[in-house]
C-alpha cells in the first residue's frame, strides 16, 4: 500500500437543518480503489463532493498530502482541485467547446500549458480511449458512453493524483455502461488512485481494493471486497446486499 493521500476525520455536512454526513472518518492511500456503495440519500455523493471541496464541510478536517484543505485559502483550494479529477453522473461536458476544447481548456488556464502541448496531450489520451476521431466533434454529437469517456479524459489531462467518480454510469443506457467501466478498470490497473461512488456491485467486487458502505450519513462498514460481500457484518449492510445482489 502506498502513502496516505487523503485522510478524512469526523467529516460532517449539513444543508440547513438536514445533516447529511454525521461524522465520517477514513483514509485513501496511493494506488487504492475505494468504492463507496449504499442506498440513495445515504450521503455518498456529498461525501465525494466534500473531498474536492465542491461542498464545504460543516465540521471535520480533510488532509490531502498532509495539508489541511478544508481551512486552506481559496487559491490553495483551486490548486487542490486541480490535483483531483472528478467525473460526474451527468458528464458536465462544456457544450460550447469541441471535445478537444473541453480537454485542453483547464490544462491551458490552470497549468499554463501552451495550446499545442495541451492538444498533443489530449490527442494522446483520446487515442488511448479510442475517441481520437471525435476530437473536432461537439459533446451533443456523442453518445452517453462516449461523453463519459471524454469527461474522464478531461480529468486525466490534468494529471490528477486521485480521481473521484460520482455515479459515473448511472445516467447511461445499459449497453454503454460496459465501455465506461472498462476504461475505469484500465485506469485502476494502471495504478490510478480512485474513489468511486457507484451502484455497480460487480465493479466494486472486481476492481475495488476496499469497499465502503455508507448509510444515514455514516460509514457503516468498510472492508476488502471479498470479506465485504461474502461476510457482511452490519445488519444494515446485510439487508442492503440482500436487496441488490439477487
Amino acid at each position: 500500500m502506498g502513502k496516505e493521500l487523503l485522510k478524512i476525520e469526523n467529516l460532517k455536512k449539513s444543508f440547513g437543518p438536514l445533516q447529511v454526513l454525521k461524522g465520517v472518518s477514513t483514509n485513501v492511500c496511493e494506488g487504492e480503489v475505494v468504492v463507496v456503495i449504499g442506498p440513495s440519500g445515504g450521503g455518498k455523493s456529498t461525501f465525494l463532493r466534500c473531498l474536492n471541496l465542491l461542498e464545504t464541510p460543516t465540521e471535520g478536517t480533510i488532509w490531502f498530502n498532509g495539508q489541511d484543505i478544508v481551512h486552506a485559502s481559496e487559491r490553495e483550494k483551486n490548486h487542490v482541485r486541480s490535483e483531483m479529477g472528478m467525473v460526474f453522473q451527468h458528464f458536465n461536458l462544456f457544450p460550447h467547446l469541441s471535445i478537444l476544447g473541453n480537454i485542453t481548456l483547464a490544462p491551458q488556464l490552470v497549468r499554463g500549458l501552451k495550446k499545442k502541448e495541451a492538444e498533443a496531450k489530449a490527442m494522446e489520451l483520446l487515442e488511448r480511449v479510442g475517441l481520437a476521431d471525435k476530437a473536432k466533434a461537439y459533446p451533443q454529437q456523442l453518445s452517453g458512453g462516449q461523453k463519459q469517456r471524454v469527461a474522464i479524459v478531461r480529468s486525466l489531462a490534468m494529471n490528477p493524483q486521485v480521481m473521484l467518480f460520482d455515479e459515473p454510469t448511472s445516467a447511461l443506457d445499459p449497453e454503454m455502461v460496459g465501455e465506461v467501466l472498462n476504461l475505469m478498470k484500465a485506469l485502476a490497473k494502471a495504478g490510478m488512485t480512485m474513489v468511486v461512488v457507484t451502484h455497480e456491485m460487480g465493479f466494486a467486487r472486481e476492481v475495488g481494493t476496499r469497499v465502503c458502505f455508507m448509510d444515514g450519513g455514516l460509514l457503516v462498514e468498510e472492508n476488502a471486497p471479498e470479506a465485504f460481500f461474502d461476510n457482511p457484518g452490519h445488519p444494515r449492510l446485510k439487508d442492503f446486499l440482500s436487496k441488490v445482489l439477487k
Binding site: L54, N78, R81, N92, L109
Partner: peptide
Amino acid sequence: GQMEAGRALGM
C-alpha cells in the same frame, strides 16, 4: 454542473 465541472478542474 457547468460551474462545478469548471471548479473541479481547478479553475
